[in-house]
Amino acid sequence: MAAFLTKCILDFFIAFGVVLGGTLLGGVASVLVMEPPTTRMLLIAEQIKIWALVAAVGGTIDPIRLIESNLMIGYISPAVKQIVYIIFAFIGATMGTSLIQWICKGGGGE
């Protein structure tokens, strides 16, 4: 159980970090090329979210294959674990995107 929770937490923070880091560095790059950083950062945060999820769960199609193969032979537990890992990565990527949106829009209740 500890290994499962460890992987869930790692997937969450990897996805969160990919969105946050990629977007912040994209904002720095936009300043260098004289573009408005907040506009570019909001766009990057939305575009990078799916890639953050892919990076967190393994970077290939293997997690999806694992779900399919286990369900086909009737093993539900490994498939559910993979789905939970994907959910944690999705939550991390979404929270990273929300944080960037909050930062770029001023964090006020507009």
Rank of each mutant, 00 (worst) to 15 (best):
I91F: 02
M41V: 02
A89Q: 04
Q47H: 09
E110V: 06
G21T: 14
G106D: 06
G92K: 00
E110F: 08
I64Q: 05
Y85T: 13
T97L: 12
G108F: 09
M41D: 04
A2L: 14
T60K: 08
V57K: 12
L71Q: 00
G22M: 00
P63Y: 09
I48Q: 09
I61R: 02
G92M: 07
D11R: 14
G58F: 01
K49L: 15
L25W: 10
Q101E: 03
A52I: 13
S30P: 06
S77I: 13
R40I: 15
G58W: 04
M41W: 02
V54F: 07
T97H: 13
G74T: 12
M95R: 07
D11T: 10
I100K: 03
L20Q: 01
E68Q: 13
G58V: 08
V84S: 02
I73Y: 11
M34K: 15
M1I: 14
W102F: 05
E35I: 00
T23Y: 07
L5G: 01
F88Q: 06
M1F: 13
F13W: 08
P37L: 06
K105R: 09
R40M: 14
A79W: 12
M34H: 13
D62K: 12
A93V: 10
K7P: 00
G109A: 13
M41R: 08
G27V: 04
Y75D: 15
E68R: 14
G109T: 14
V33S: 10
A2T: 14
P78S: 12
T60A: 05
V54E: 06
V80D: 09
I73C: 11
A45F: 01
I48Y: 05
E46Q: 10
V84N: 00
I67Y: 05
Q47Y: 02
G59R: 01
E46H: 04
G96P: 03
K7V: 13
M34W: 09
C8L: 15
I9Q: 04
M72F: 11
A93T: 08
F12M: 07
L32D: 11
A45D: 01
T6G: 04
M95L: 15
P37Y: 09
G108E: 05
S69W: 09
S69I: 15
A45H: 03
A55R: 00
I86H: 05
T97S: 11
I9C: 11
K81H: 01
I48A: 03
A93K: 06
W102C: 01
I86V: 14
K7R: 13
N70W: 10
I14G: 10
Q101N: 12
L25I: 14
G106N: 06
I64A: 13
L43R: 01
I44F: 03
I73T: 15
G108A: 00
I64E: 01
Q47P: 01
I48H: 04
V84Q: 02
Q101A: 13
A3F: 09
G59S: 03
G106K: 07
V31G: 05
V28D: 03
I64C: 04
I48E: 09
I44S: 05
F4G: 00
G96Y: 08
I64T: 13
G96C: 08
T6A: 11
A79N: 08
I87D: 00
A29E: 07
V54C: 04
L99E: 01
F13R: 05
A2S: 14
T97P: 07
F90N: 09
F88T: 11
G27P: 03
V31T: 12
S69V: 15
W51Y: 15
L5Y: 14
K105L: 07
G22A: 00
I9N: 06
T39F: 03
